[in-house]
């Protein structure tokens, strides 16, 4: 074994967080952040605000396509299952009806389509949102607890190519932010 690696903890700026008091302020500020050309940024609100998608310049959600995939899967699984089980593998004649018959398949076709679509909607949504994720720089802020109560936040992350903490702070201060803070996270640096 080589020498014991040295681990040092260093603080790193992770994001700049601004607090706003009203929905109007945050949507207005979001437009400014969008126009300033930032990429890795987000708004945090206690409820969805109408018009925010446009203010942030977001493209349409892709959940619907995932659900379509789920629906088609559910429908095919149900069809193949019933056809193979009752029609091929062990045909049974009940009530004089043919072993493989489509009209009586309708309820189960429908139910499994709905079931698979719903799974696709829920897990598709979580997947697109990269949730669960229990750690995020914004949680470093004590004030951020109000993001699920009555305050509105915008965060610009350090990963953004245009990121400059002072410039972001100045931008927020010009758009009625009631509080701006720079959030730091501890980072491990390992030297061999």
């Amino acid at each position: 074994m080589s020498a014991q690696p040295t681990v040092t903890h260093k603080k790193r700026v992770a994001c700049v967080l601004a607090q706003f008091d009203t929905a109007a302020d945050v949507i207005h500020a979001a437009e400014k952040v969008r126009d300033a050309g930032y990429q890795s940024w987000d708004t945090h609100t206690p409820f969805p605000i109408h018009g925010m998608d446009k203010a942030m310049g977001l493209s349409d959600s892709r959940v619907g396509w995932i659900v379509l995939g789920g629906a088609l899967t559910g429908l095919s699984v149900a069809f193949v299952m019933m056809w193979w089980m009752n029609g091929v593998d062990y045909p049974t004649v009940v009530g004089g009806k043919p072993p493989f018959t489509t009209p009586s398949m309708v309820p189960v076709l429908f139910e499994l389509t709905v079931l698979f679509s719903s799974f696709a909607a829920v897990f598709g949504m979580l997947g697109l949102n990269k949730l669960p994720r229990h750690h995020h720089p914004v949680f470093e802020s004590e004030r951020f607890r109000k993001a699920s109560d009555d305050k509105f936040f915008i965060s610009v992350e350090a990963e953004d190519p245009k990121f400059n903490a002072d410039k972001v702070r100045a931008l927020f201060e010009g758009v009625h932010a009631t509080f701006v803070e720079v959030l730091e996270v501890l980072e491990e640096e390992v030297e061999a």
């Binding site: 945090h44 925010m52 949102n129 949730l131 669960p132 229990h134």
Partner: peptide
């Protein structure tokens, strides 16, 4: 699940 009221999340959520 680490929900942080993100609008990028609200969009998919809604």
């Amino acid at each position: 699940l680490g929900w942080r009221g993100s609008n990028r999340h609200w969009q998919n959520y809604e």
